[in-house]
């Protein structure tokens, strides 16, 4: 079977299929070819798909928690739609991970039957939001990062990752615009909204370094043209981050990037000037989601997300 046909097997062919846990969505693995690009370790590819899939799955769940709690109905629709896009990306990536690892696990197994230590999402995806300003700041950071990542991943040597990325780029472009527009609206709004937006950005900023820390799996797969090394995303991220925060009057306009390269989140001492953190060594001591080390927030998310699957193991309806 050619790769062109691989996607069909990511979906079900059963008339009764619905897409929720336990509703029989277990066939998509049947017939998915185990084809891998030359020179790619299937365990490594599976681990990489889990990273990107878990980022989307966990952030999607956090966004779903905002539905019924947003400031306006339009924002509930927006957050639900963004969450739905991410859930779709997660399903494709988890299914691909299951196929690559070759143990017969499907998307339900991977989403619903793993402990926190088995998840590989960045910790930023799982963090709770104190208020709407925190949410839009976090969504802005994560979608800016994911968009830069997916954009590069469209050139992946793995045709399935490239296809998932090409579809995701169109979606995440809208996610980033939505979040950035809220950051500007609140930051450049009333004194109260400005202060709360600023507080959210100041809380978030020290948590960003994790996004650019390269895992050996990412480095290894990037070296064979399959993955993206997140360290290569930092300059683009910082450009967008700084531009939006300046427009939102959350950074002084003088903290521009004029002249040199973008300030580095990792090690540039000037980074603090533009609102991005120095002190990468401290950051590296924090929990690192890519290695399965998480904040307590992930366990809370999984308690909720996996509740039905745990209480009715193997349940089908």
């Amino acid at each position: 079977m050619a790769f062109d046909d691989a996607y069909h097997a990511l979906t079900d062919h059963d008339d009764d299929a619905r897409w929720a846990y336990g509703t029989g969505f277990t066939d998509p693995l049947a017939g998915v070819p185990g084809d891998l690009p030359d020179g790619v370790d299937r365990t490594e590819l599976a681990a990489y798909c889990l990273m990107l899939g878990d980022d989307a799955l966990i952030l999607s769940h956090r966004l779903q928690q905002w539905v019924t709690r947003s400031p306006e109905l339009e924002d509930e629709l927006a957050l639900a739609n963004i969450g739905l896009d991410l859930l779709g990306q997660a399903r494709l990536l988890l299914t691909r991970a299951g196929v690559a690892e070759g143990w017969g696990r499907d998307e339900d197994d991977l989403a619903m039957r793993r402990d926190p230590s088995g998840f590989r999402n960045v910790c930023l995806a799982e963090r709770a939001d104190a208020d709407f300003a925190h949410l839009v700041a976090r969504l802005f950071a994560l979608s800016t990062w994911r968009l830069a990542l997916l954009d590069r991943l469209t050139a992946s040597r793995d045709p399935m990752l490239a296809a998932i990325a090409a579809k995701g780029v169109k979606e995440v472009t809208y996610h980033r615009d939505y979040a950035a527009q809220w950051v500007v609206r609140l930051g450049d709004g009333t004194p109260l909204s400005h202060d709360r937006m600023l507080a959210a950005v100041e809380t978030l900023t020290p948590q960003l370094a994790e996004l650019f820390r390269s895992h050996p799996t990412e480095i290894g797969l990037a070296s064979v043209g399959v993955a993206v090394d997140p360290a290569t995303l930092e300059a683009e991220f910082t450009q967008v981050w700084t531009h939006v925060l300046q427009t939102a009057t959350l950074l002084p306009p003088t903290a521009s990037l004029g002249g040199g390269a973008a300030p580095s989140l990792a090690c540039d001492p000037a980074a603090e000037v533009s609102g991005v953190p120095a002190g990468i060594e401290q950051e590296r001591a924090r929990p690192w989601g890519r290695d399965g080390e998480h904040t307590p927030a992930l366990a809370e998310i999984l308690d909720e997300m996996q509740g039905v699957a745990r209480s009715v193991p193997g349940g089908v309806w």
């Binding site: 069909h8 979906t11 494709l92 296809a163 090409a166 579809k167 169109k170």
Partner: peptide
Amino acid sequence: AEVRTVIAPPWT
């Protein structure tokens, strides 16, 4: 009848 799904090239 079989219905297959492809995601590449992405819908526009």
